[in-house]
Computed example of a mutant assay.
Amino acid sequence: MPTAQAALRGTNAAVVEILLAAMYDPVWTKGIHGSADLILGLAAFGFLHFWKTPPWLVVVLASLAGLVYLG
């Protein structure tokens, strides 16, 4: 059904845009202040996406890294 497939592709694109906007405004503008923050965020993403680490463990590790970074 080409019409249904086209509607789903459009919906998928809209959802991706909404997620990107939600990621930028509160997360990027409030949480990424320098290169160390960016590296920590990318490392957390890598643990979640590439190594399939459980989210609760990524939160704990990122929290500990933040505590070490902030002193």
Results as ranks from 00 to 15, higher is better:
37 D>E: 12
62 A>G: 03
3 T>D: 13
61 L>S: 11
38 L>I: 01
70 L>F: 14
40 L>T: 06
68 V>F: 15
61 L>Q: 03
70 L>Y: 15
53 T>Q: 07
63 S>W: 15
20 L>K: 09
60 V>H: 08
22 A>D: 12
51 W>H: 08
12 N>F: 12
50 F>G: 02
66 G>A: 12
21 A>T: 10
1 M>E: 02
61 L>M: 13
57 L>T: 04
37 D>R: 02
27 V>T: 05
17 E>D: 08
28 W>K: 11
9 R>H: 08
33 H>Q: 13
54 P>A: 12
29 T>Y: 05
50 F>T: 14
42 L>D: 02
33 H>N: 13
6 A>L: 10
60 V>L: 13
23 M>Q: 03
51 W>I: 04
69 Y>K: 09
14 A>K: 08
33 H>I: 03
32 I>Y: 12
10 G>K: 02
15 V>P: 01
58 V>S: 06
49 H>P: 00
61 L>R: 04
26 P>S: 07
37 D>N: 08
46 G>S: 13
6 A>F: 07
7 A>Y: 07
60 V>G: 00
52 K>V: 03
35 S>W: 11
15 V>S: 06
52 K>E: 15
4 A>S: 09
22 A>L: 10
62 A>P: 04
69 Y>F: 06
48 L>N: 06
62 A>W: 01
70 L>H: 12
28 W>T: 11
8 L>N: 08
8 L>S: 07
63 S>Y: 14
3 T>Y: 12
31 G>H: 06
5 Q>N: 10
38 L>K: 03
31 G>T: 05
20 L>H: 05
31 G>V: 00
27 V>K: 05
1 M>P: 11
26 P>A: 06
3 T>N: 05
4 A>L: 11
42 L>T: 09
53 T>H: 01
11 T>P: 00
14 A>Q: 15
47 F>G: 08
59 V>M: 06
23 M>R: 05
7 A>V: 10
12 N>E: 08
20 L>P: 00
33 H>E: 13
59 V>Q: 02
51 W>T: 15
5 Q>M: 13
15 V>M: 06
61 L>G: 02
8 L>A: 14
1 M>R: 10
21 A>D: 14
17 E>G: 07
37 D>Q: 06
3 T>M: 09
48 L>H: 04
15 V>C: 01
63 S>F: 10
1 M>C: 02
67 L>C: 07
35 S>A: 14
14 A>I: 06
9 R>E: 14
37 D>V: 01
9 R>P: 00
1 M>H: 07
37 D>G: 03
46 G>M: 08
35 S>C: 02
69 Y>L: 08
37 D>T: 00
44 A>Y: 02
35 S>G: 01
1 M>T: 09
60 V>E: 02
54 P>R: 14
35 S>F: 07
53 T>Y: 04
19 L>F: 10
34 G>P: 01
46 G>N: 08
34 G>K: 01
45 F>S: 10
4 A>I: 11
1 M>V: 07
55 P>S: 04
3 T>W: 07
56 W>A: 11
25 D>I: 06
54 P>K: 05
39 I>C: 08
62 A>C: 04
67 L>W: 10
39 I>G: 02
13 A>L: 07
20 L>Q: 12
27 V>F: 15
8 L>G: 03
26 P>C: 04
18 I>R: 09
31 G>Q: 09
40 L>E: 10
59 V>G: 00
38 L>R: 08
43 A>F: 09
5 Q>F: 12
11 T>F: 13
36 A>W: 12
64 L>K: 04
20 L>E: 13
1 M>S: 14
9 R>W: 07
30 K>I: 01
